[in-house]
């Protein structure tokens, strides 16, 4: 196997890593403000990481996700509300970035179908029990 290639890759990635190291200090949590951190974490868990498809930007180890977390933190610090931060990312990336679809319009389907399933299923269960109950065959 071509070791030189592997090494080249290491170097290539070292690049990205270095760029990130240089910038990592400002993204360090501000220890004084735990409420800010909690809101950042909450928002970051709701947003989908663009480069890794499945994870939230809270979970993703990618550099972009890391920067996006710091964007959230900066915007919150600048006085934006969580809704405004969400709106910012939706503006840039589309609804796709929200890991839980906004509960409005057609999206309500995904929230209501499970509830409907429980209600309808509950009615069926009650009816089944009523219809099938013949009373105790013998005393307990």
């Amino acid at each position: 196997m071509s070791h030189s290639w592997a090494l080249a890759l290491v170097l290539l990635f070292a690049t990205g890593a270095e760029a990130q190291v240089g910038s990592a200090i400002p993204s360090m949590p501000a220890r004084s403000d735990s409420a800010l951190e909690a809101t950042t974490t909450m928002l970051a868990s709701e947003l989908r990481c663009p480069v890794c498809q499945g994870n939230s930007i809270q979970d993703s180890p990618s550099e972009l996700a890391q920067e996006m977390r710091s964007v959230i933190r900066d915007q919150l610090r600048a006085g934006r509300t969580p809704d405004e931060v969400r709106a910012y990312f939706v503006d840039k990336y589309g609804e796709w970035i929200l890991l839980a679809p906004k509960a409005e319009g057609f999206n309500l389907v995904v929230y209501l179908v499970p509830i409907l399933a429980i209600v309808v299923g509950g009615v069926v269960v009650v009816r089944t029990v009523r219809r099938s109950t013949t009373g105790p065959a013998q005393g307990a």
Partner: peptide, 9 residues
């Protein structure tokens, strides 16, 4: 429109 349904949901 593409939407995501993930962990929070």
């Amino acid at each position: 429109v593409k939407v995501s349904v993930g962990e929070p949901f």
